[in-house]
Nucleic acid binder design. Sequence first.
DNA 1: GATGAATGAGGCTTCATTCAT
DNA 2: GATGAATGAAGCCTCATTCAT
Lengths: 224, 224, 224, 224
Amino acid sequence: MPRISLASKRSRSSPVRVPPGRVKLAEALKLLLERKEFNAITTAQISRTSGVNEALIYKYFGDKRGLLHHVLGEFLDIHFEQLKADLKGIKGALNKLTTLIRAHIHLYETNRIVAKILLLEVRNYPGYFESESYKQVRRYSRTLVKIIEEGRSRGEIRTDIPVGTIRQAILGGIEHVCLPGIIYNRPFSTDELSAGLCAVLFDGIKAGESGARGRSAARRKMSR
Amino acid sequence: MPRISLASKRSRSSPVRVPPGRVKLAEALKLLLERKEFNAITTAQISRTSGVNEALIYKYFGDKRGLLHHVLGEFLDIHFEQLKADLKGIKGALNKLTTLIRAHIHLYETNRIVAKILLLEVRNYPGYFESESYKQVRRYSRTLVKIIEEGRSRGEIRTDIPVGTIRQAILGGIEHVCLPGIIYNRPFSTDELSAGLCAVLFDGIKAGESGARGRSAARRKMSR
Amino acid sequence: MPRISLASKRSRSSPVRVPPGRVKLAEALKLLLERKEFNAITTAQISRTSGVNEALIYKYFGDKRGLLHHVLGEFLDIHFEQLKADLKGIKGALNKLTTLIRAHIHLYETNRIVAKILLLEVRNYPGYFESESYKQVRRYSRTLVKIIEEGRSRGEIRTDIPVGTIRQAILGGIEHVCLPGIIYNRPFSTDELSAGLCAVLFDGIKAGESGARGRSAARRKMSR
Amino acid sequence: MPRISLASKRSRSSPVRVPPGRVKLAEALKLLLERKEFNAITTAQISRTSGVNEALIYKYFGDKRGLLHHVLGEFLDIHFEQLKADLKGIKGALNKLTTLIRAHIHLYETNRIVAKILLLEVRNYPGYFESESYKQVRRYSRTLVKIIEEGRSRGEIRTDIPVGTIRQAILGGIEHVCLPGIIYNRPFSTDELSAGLCAVLFDGIKAGESGARGRSAARRKMSR
DNA sequence: GATGAATGAGGCTTCATTCAT
DNA sequence: GATGAATGAAGCCTCATTCAT
């Protein structure tokens, strides 16, 4: 799969002059997030690490949390762009889902920062669901739904389970398999986890002859 | 299964007069931990909730975290005592493991506080591994190892995997299946999770005829 | 008129041990308010002036504004107590009003701090109208209304102007005559101002034979 | 009365090219002053409102307060110019004073911004009395004094009160009657207030047969 | 003439902790 | 055994101001 570089995208699509301080702040936060959780990182540390004045956090990102969302947003942008490219050549909904799941888990495997933000920091935070980042997440969610719907209309995916439930099963499943690795900073293998998850999910959501055994259990476990 | 009451143990082993303030503080922290994470709880709140002077936290527990460890220790004491009793009548290492795993998951299911402390608060905290609580955890670990060794000597458990690896697979597996429920405050079923985990683990660690397929994967996933 | 000392009241009615820091903070704010407006006073200054740690402001008064309200409340308490005593022997509503107006202006003349807070700081501050101080002010207002009503039922005060309008005319008049002196820190004479104000007001609000001339103008000017 | 347009004066006396940014900044501050007090307005807001770079405030006006003084100065220029024109045809010192007082109160009634600046912002500010605006105010004061002296030499105004006292009585009186309206943003009527003030003042300062009653009181009240 | 970037000083507030009684 | 009082360090954030381009 051809990987798109971070830099190329930005510079190609918009030759905007980004103030150095702005960039440094984002880089500093990323760096710090590798070692501690967001709440344990102080603005003073961000400032010190970035070599940039603390006040610029507020000038550029509104507040400390705004900076976090910016960092998250950047990662998501890249990921979604990459995903779009990856999905280009793929035929069939299940194949597309496999790609999406792999890519998502791969994102978490290689980018612990975004994983932590998404799985741990950002939830149950008042205002997140009105944030810009959440809009990106919703766009992603819609992409996922479209694939599911395509799969249904092609007879690849069962139609007796609501689309929303399937979507949640997939997203919840991804979370589930990655979470322990993320939390304890343990390495994990995208190959293994995605293969395992797809096996479980497809056995449950695929249309047709699949055995009934284990289905109910799997479904219950995954849907919220 | 006969359950052992909380009070009995303490009073049996040590008829010490425990100062009321000490108890109240611990109770207050437990109460508060049900609603927020440790770092979001202030000593002022603990004092207010307990009706006891803030300074007593320091007199009795050294510092705020000391109080946390005390609370954790209490829970663990009860759990281990209970576990010992539960294991009394059980024959066979695999049966004992089943009991242990069930009890452990049951603890997490019904006592979210201890689950959160153990899975989230206590780790990566400097000094935890020298703490009193950690000693309890090690004692627990030794119990587990003894069961594994018993299983090996009785031919119930493979001997070609290091004991430590098996132990970690079990503990890691427990964590793995409970973590999402704990983190997102979702209910989960001890029955389902322990049955599933035992199936996977025993298929992997049981001696004898079990299929080779998936073994390596399972092992890699569980060990840290 | 017998004046009640500040200390006597507190110590007589409630032998509460007030923490020294609490007192010092209030004293410090009073001192500073003599020289600058509340917003220009920093918590650091209050702390420095009082010789007490900044954090105690928050322990004792919730926040900086809470301290202001406390100071205000203290002054008002004393004033109202004094007023009640002053009104004891007075017969007749107009005589009582004269006493009230005199006392009010006297308060402003001798206590610039309370005057500034009440006339300048406290208004148009969100939350003031839910504050404890405002409750005191309302209690005061009710006392005033009762006097007016007494005057009406005794035929001393016109009944063709709503009580509320009269009350506002009185309070607005007091404000009006004191404001310039307060704002520019100029001395003013309670005797003169209260005599003048009463003359204008009573000519306007008194029942009976008073000349119509000037009434409408006076009324318009005073009511809000 | 013929009103003089704002533009005419500037362009007549100095056909200087005024940089657009300079003008925009002043306009922005005026706009903002309508809604909040100077200290609550930030340079960032001024910049945003004006659409002009923050740094230009410093280039053109030295600092934020310089901008305030500039705005004030502009208003005063216009007012004085207008006043000069208004006074042209008037005969008699008392008539001139009436005109001046009316114009002054009218300025405050219709231009709350200048009123607030002059009555509230600018005083007790270190350096005000060395400022350019204050020079304008002094020029105004001299005009007033000249009128008073003219009135004295023509026998219209008492000579047994120092000119300075009379001047302050007039200026203080204007302040006095407008202040409450300004502070609490209440509308007031130039006609009423100026008529009332002139009545009081002239009764007090006019030479001749006027009653002695109330004189001392009036004088004391007005002088600082 | 105008701008974007950056900054230092300081504001209010929170909190774990100590200590004399 | 318990308490009230007090504190230092630090956290997030705001703002007027400067400077190179």
